[in-house]
Amino acid sequence: MIDKETVEYVAHLARIELQPEELEKLSRQLHDILGFIDKLSVLDVGLVKPTSHILPISNVLREDEPHICLTPDKALENAPGKNGNFFSVPKIIE
């Protein structure tokens, strides 16, 4: 069972602001999702190898060769705040 405090905490970590009714609804939904996933615990997976990825490929690497970068103008095109060639954000330390 997932409680409201946990959902509030997760929402905070994700920087999501939830209204009381949303919190209620999401708590219920998350509870159902976790319950669904929990079906796995009845299976015997003793013989299944642990995996971290669904694709059976490995060692995907690229050569250390430079590509063409974005120009600063292009990089900053959609920035909500900019200052010269910098992205500008609300001050983060006092």
């Binding site: 705040g81 910098f86 992205f87 500008s88 609300p90 001050k91 983060i92």
Partner: peptide, 9 residues
């Protein structure tokens, strides 16, 4: 860090 904002590179 500037006076009123922070700049990111």
């Amino acid at each position: 860090h500037e006076t009123s904002s922070s700049l990111v590179d």
